[in-house]
Design a protein around this nucleic acid. Structure first.
Lengths: 264, 264
DNA sequence: GCGCCATCGG
DNA sequence: CCGATGGCGC
């Protein structure tokens, strides 16, 4: 291990479909560890060869058919810790590993929550809130230096979305979701590294919908992807970057990669 | 009109998906007239602009949603004659035009006929034979110099398939289909221009299944696409070519284009 | 809008 | 194997 460690999180929306741009990103940025969400592939079909060829020989997968799926690819040794199923519904939304320095790295894909922000009308919204609550119970009991990253599907701050007012009733930015996310953050005093390095009210987005033909028009982004750390780990963070140019690539993911670097 | 006229027939298996290779072919070969089958698009969505840009300004369409669909694109004036529905099932399988010299040009897409060569078990096979029989009744009454071309979905001769013996019970080469096609051919003394210029037993194929990963392995082709003409028209034919290299293009059709040139 | 899957027709 | 479609989830 060198004297820094860089960790990337990226919701890739099908690793098989986007393996080419992932390779491009890795060549360009050379992070030590890549956490992926929405890999959408069973472990047996995950394209490991291109990662190995680029030096990412340590691979921990938790995939499923069709939806969801997470993975951690690393050029430093990692050891699988757990693949948690907080809702006991067999959805592949978490994988955790142990890093060489003893830190834990937790990679999470929080449910999107459907369209209607109402637990009664839309069960998916209830499932999302329940998921974050169960994560909170789990988080409370963690007692180790930890990085918690992934697609949380919630943009908590006003400056995390292109228009706070217009999104107050839109899933990902509703008060009840923000409250749930704040409770999760408080449960282990997680440090939000994105905002640590780019404090509000700076614009900081990680996702732009596919539904608009040109994502740059009106810049209607949201910050759905996060990198959190326990205080001890956060103290060693040296920078945090978001890679907006990846949203312009051919056949892009709707999410961009985010990176945090730590001094060791 | 110059002193020659060249006519191409090509089952394109989705004109929208393959518009790029069609443009490439037209630039390369510059036929006067292009007959397409399996365009798989309603007339309103047919990509006419690329054809017009290449000089094919005379366009006669007979398409439908999803399946089938035929079209004639020409750089010499053509006039729509008819869009026949022999089976009165609204399947878009024929379009006929009149050429400047008075010839008729008939573009046909014969039903494939399903997998099992048995009218009882497989209604599609019956429909195919019925289609050819109804074409035969129509053909008998034609009384004009005519070119009849398209995807007939029958390979009549032994040398029209990669293995006569192995395909005797395979739809497209069964005796009952060959008999039906022979009756059609006899009904107006159609001259088979492919075999006029490349007489049996020469290998002459126009189709290779997608199902084999490499179409060149064992060369399991069939001659399903044909260019026929009445005797008067056939007398002026100067050459007939099949363009096998198109089967190697990126994202190819499973059929290749065939061309006949006539002296005027 | 965009991927995945199932199904159909080839 | 390859397109088109329709439905799902995001």
């Amino acid at each position: 291990m060198a004297d820094t460690l860089s960790i990337v999180s990226w919701n890739i929306n099908s690793i098989r479909f986007r393996i080419g741009i992932v390779e491009q990103f890795l060549r360009e940025t050379q992070p030590d560890i890549l956490c992926l969400q929405e890999t959408k592939v069973i472990d047996g079909d995950f394209p490991t060869a291109p990662f190995k060829a680029l030096g990412y020989r340590h691979i921990v997968l938790h995939g499923q058919r069709m939806h969801h799926g997470v993975a951690i690819l690393s050029r430093v040794p990692i050891e699988e810790d757990d693949r948690l199923d907080w809702q006991a519904n067999r959805e592949a939304r978490h994988v955790g590993v142990r890093l060489p320095n003893g830190w834990r790295l937790e990679n999470v894909y929080v449910p999107a929550g459907g369209d209607v922000p109402d637990r009664e009308v839309n069960p998916k919204f209830g499932q999302k809130l329940d998921f974050v609550e169960r994560m909170t119970r789990w988080s409370e009991s963690l007692d180790c230096p930890t990085v918690l990253t992934g697609d949380f599907n919630i943009a908590p701050l006003e400056s995390d979305v292109w228009s706070h007012k217009q999104l107050l009733n839109t899933v990902s930015h509703t008060p009840v979701e923000v409250e749930a996310l704040n409770a999760l953050q408080a449960s282990n005093s997680w440090v939000d590294l994105g905002r640590r390095f780019h404090p509000a009210p700076a614009r900081l987005h990680t996702w732009w919908s596919y539904r608009s033909p040109d994502w740059t028009v009106n810049d209607r982004g949201r910050r759905l992807d996060h990198m959190w750390a326990t205080a001890d780990v956060a103290a060693s963070a040296t920078r945090h970057e978001v890679f907006e140019h990846c949203r312009n690539w051919l056949k892009p993911s709707d999410h961009i990669p985010i990176l945090t670097e730590f001094a060791l």
